[in-house]
């Protein structure tokens, strides 16, 4: 997702609050989700409290990065000029092995090949020296 000049041009995460911690692990090329250390429930998006048991205790637990497509969109019309070179692009919702669902662009799959249940895996794209984003590709 770079332009011909090599500069990353798509929007970057604001990294507010707990989101900053999620992206800190991404920078280390580690996919981690919060996991409650009292009841064991995984959660994503990041939250201070466990919605299952009310605990404030958690760890950032390593995730497998593997999952299956639950749904998706194929964006054809860019809604920002930054996406002019990116369209058409696919953004799936993915059921991760840990039981959470995650959003990220899917690279290298043709729109007509998309189907529910497609096995995908996370890889990391170093967008800038500070920020790394998770992306999906077809599982190998």
């Amino acid at each position: 997702m770079t332009n011909p000049g090599g500069k990353y041009q798509l929007p970057l995460p604001a990294r507010m609050g707990l989101a900053a911690e999620f992206y800190r692990y991404c920078k280390a090329h580690e996919l981690r989700f919060q996991r409650c250390t009292d009841c064991g429930a995984w959660r994503h998006l990041p939250r201070p409290m466990c919605p299952e048991c009310g605990s404030f205790n958690y760890q950032w637990a390593r995730a497998s990065g593997r999952g299956k497509v639950y749904s998706w969109i194929t964006v054809v019309q860019p809604m920002l000029p930054a996406f002019n070179d990116a369209v058409p692009y696919i953004v799936p919702l993915v059921d991760m092995e840990e039981g959470v669902r995650m959003v990220a662009m899917l690279e290298g799959v043709a729109p007509e090949a998309m189907h529910i249940g497609m096995a995908v895996e996370v890889y990391f794209e170093d967008a800038t020296p500070e920020i790394t984003l998770p992306r999906f590709r077809k599982a190998r």
Binding site: L12, A14, I73, V75, V91, V103, M105
Partner: peptide, 17 residues
């Protein structure tokens, strides 16, 4: 916040998405 941190960087940021 959800859009800004987790959807927009992946290209999903308007209701049509």
């Amino acid at each position: 916040a959800t859009i800004a941190d987790f959807y927009m960087p992946q290209g999903a940021f308007v209701p049509a998405h």
